[in-house]
């Protein structure tokens, strides 16, 4: 999953969610489902950034710390890049089930505080290259600033984290 996923053509709607009082949005083409966070099962062999797996329709859905996915990890003294300072989505209620790429069967879970809803993605070109930037655009919606994420970058980070955790 190191290569940037191809954007889904015709996808012009964004899913807006809230994480730690910041509003984010990403194209829904990368979102497989919004699931209620179920019981999270810890996997001893995985590193902490991958907090565990969740039963998702009978499959084991790996949950990746949203801070890492959104680049908000806190590197405290003595902490590893995937150190103990990072907690994985235990406080969040909902989980965005993301596809490794549109149409792919690979999935990862990104816990969020709350899904706010859908917004119109008019003017947002999902297919354009973000150049590796996580936030490709910021726009106000209903008087609140919304960070529009590059889903490919998010998924790439997730894949990197999972690979690092399983290495």
């Amino acid at each position: 999953m190191s290569a940037a996923p191809s954007p889904v053509e015709g996808t012009d709607r964004l899913l807006m969610f809230l994480f730690e009082d910041v509003r984010y949005a990403m194209p829904i083409a990368w979102v497989v489902e919004v699931a209620e966070k179920d019981r999270v099962t810890s996997v001893p062999s995985l590193a902490l950034p991958v907090g565990g797996v969740m039963n998702w329709h009978g499959e084991a859905l790996p949950l990746v710390a949203t801070e890492l996915l959104l680049g908000r990890e806190r590197h405290e003294a003595g902490a590893t890049p995937f150190g103990a300072a990072i907690t994985v989505g235990y406080a969040q209620e909902q989980v965005l089930v993301l596809a490794a790429k549109p149409g792919s069967q690979a999935r990862l879970g990104m816990p969020v505080d709350r899904v706010i809803g859908l917004i119109d993605g008019e003017g947002f070109v999902a297919s354009r290259s973000s150049g590796g930037r996580l936030v490709v655009e910021r726009r106000p919606v209903d008087g609140r600033l919304v960070h529009i994420l590059d889903p490919a970058t998010v998924v790439a980070r997730g894949a990197e984290v999972i690979e690092s955790a399983t290495a």
């Binding site: 889904v8 015709g10 996808t11 709607r13 899913l15 829904i28 083409a29 979102v31 497989v32 489902e33 919004v34 209620e36 909902q94 899904v115 809803g117 859908l118």
Partner: peptide
């Protein structure tokens, strides 16, 4: 229901036209 409608919207978007 909201969550279901979101997922329905996601599925509808994924279904394209």
């Amino acid at each position: 229901t909201n969550l279901l409608s979101l997922n329905a919207s996601i599925e509808a978007a994924r279904a394209g036209e």
